[in-house]
Structure formats: structure tokens, C-alpha cells
Design a protein around this nucleic acid. Structure first.
Lengths: 139, 139
DNA sequence: GTAATTGCTCTAGCGACTAGAGGTTCAACC
DNA sequence: GGTTGAACCTCTAGTCGCTAGAGCAATTAC
């Protein structure tokens, strides 16, 4: 069972080397053993853990959720409901962000389409940005 | 033409007082005149400028874009193309975010639906999060 | 006149990294 | 076995866009 340098893990996971060290410093990754020359050497379990972290971060789970999930993952026979809850919560957040961005998108589009201008002085975009009441939605 | 305290501006724009001072410190708002007792007093133009900033920030324009827009806004007879470009660029960003979030949403949903588990040891969610290859899209 | 509110400056902190300085160790090749 | 160059180490500080708090001064309302 060979082990990995920090660079190997970075390549494997797509997480940058300083970020891996950062994860260690905040307790997401356990401090690995070191070589005689003080360099980190990881095993397969650490690699899997980092993969998990990288993937969950890419899905937008915040660090506290990650910590919770990793803590729960340690108890293989624990019920899975807590993790489901985290995923559902994240889903709700994503839905909210999508709908807000969709409204924003409409507003930006409306801005571009309503322009009948040539100079800044008569620029609809600037007017709309100046006056919240012209918005088609709240934010 | 009466003038406004920083609190008045905060109420008007929804921007918090420390944030208004922060905007001044980074050059988004010009330093206003002060009372004898060193308190800021703003006029209507400053209020409008802050409204503009608040609104553009709510639309997600980054500070450099704001600065560019405000700089351009000073020249009422300048052509409007630069502002249009900023809005179009922002629109592209928003579109990208929406499509990435939509893909993510599908993935989270798939996770929840594929669960046929009870304990963490056999939890699909944890497996999917551990293994990027199970994803239905790239990220 | 006095009390409550609002304002001032300054420093430090947030999350989640990222960049750089200045030095050490490892691995591969000859 | 020696040398070179890539990879590694720690540490500090910077990023963005604010936000919080300390400790004090000014304004406003009654």
C-alpha cells in the first residue's frame, strides 16, 4: 500500500496544494504522517476523504456541513437521515438561487432591450440602475 | 435643498452605515462635506449615487464594473456602448451560473431519489459524494 | 438641561482560500 | 555517489466586500 505526496493528492483531487494544507489547518483533513524530511505522506483513506471534500465543496456545501458529514461518515451504522437533511437543505438553497438569478436575468435582458439611446445621458440602463422602482422584481 | 445624515442615506438605500463609509474609503462615493462636529452631510446627488451603487451591487455587478459605470456616467454625452458591454457581460455570467446550478440541482435530486438505505454505511449520498465518476455532469 | 440616539475613527475579523518569500528535501539521471 | 531541478516546507500577508466592536463625540427630542 504505497502512499501519496501532497502533490499526488492535488493531482488526484483537483484541489490545489495550499488548499490541502488549509483543509488540514482547519481540521477537515487529519494531519498525515511525515517523512524524515518533514514532508506529508498520505494513504488511500486520506485520498478518499479529500475526494469527498472536493466533491462536496464543488456542490456548494459549506464547510460546517462538510464537517458534519465527515463526522457522521465515521459511524457506518448510524442512520442516514442527517445527511439527507443536509442535502435537502442544500437543494432548497440552490432552488432559491436559481429563481433569484432567473429574475435578475430577466431584468438585465429588459435593460438591454429597452435601450433606444446613443449617449450616456439618455441611457436606459443607467436610469434603471438608478431607480429601484423600475425593477420588475424585488431584491 | 436639505441634506442627509449617513443614517438617512442608510434608510433610503438599504445600505448599512459601515458599508457606506466603506464605499467612501474605496472611492465609490466621494467624501461628503462635514458638519462642525465632523459628521457627514450628503446632498441629493450623493443619495442618487448610493442608490445606483446599491442597486447595481444587488444585481451582482462587481466593484470594478461599478467604478467603470460611475466614471462613464459622469460624461453624459459619451456613447453608451461600454455600459451595454458591462451589462451583457453580466448577463453571460448569470446565464452560466444558472446552468451550473441547474445541473447541480439535478444531481442533488438524483442523490436523494436513489437512496435505498437506512444507515450511513450503505448511503448513496455518501457514495456519490465520494466518487466523482458517479456524477451526471462535470464540475 | 439632560438623556437617548446617532455619529465618529480605528482595528480586527469573516470565509475560503491564494500568493509570495525564503528555505529544505526528494527523486532521477549520469 | 554527486548533482540538479522539481517538489516540498513554514510563515506572513493579501484577496473581496463587507461586518463587529471599542471607545468616544455630536446631535436631537423632550
Amino acid at each position: 500500500m504505497r502512499d501519496y505526496s501532497i502533490g499526488d493528492l492535488a493531482t488526484d483531487s483537483g484541489v490545489k496544494i495550499p488548499t490541502i494544507r488549509y483543509y488540514e489547518s482547519v481540521g477537515l483533513l487529519p494531519p498525515p504522517p511525515r517523512t524524515e524530511g518533514n514532508q506529508r505522506r498520505y494513504d488511500g483513506a486520506a485520498r478518499d476523504r479529500l475526494r469527498f471534500i472536493a466533491h462536496a465543496r464543488a456542490m456548494g456545501f459549506p464547510m460546517p456541513s462538510l464537517k458534519a458529514m465527515l463526522r457522521i461518515a465515521g459511524h457506518k451504522d448510524a442512520p442516514c437521515d442527517d445527511i439527507d437533511d443536509l442535502v435537502r437543505g442544500r437543494l432548497i438553497e440552490v432552488d432559491e438561487r436559481i429563481s433569484r438569478l432567473t429574475a435578475l436575468r430577466a431584468e438585465l435582458n429588459a435593460m438591454l432591450e429597452s435601450r433606444h439611446h446613443g449617449t450616456v445621458g439618455e441611457c436606459r440602463v443607467m436610469e434603471v440602475l438608478s431607480d429601484h422602482h423600475e425593477c420588475t422584481h424585488e431584491h
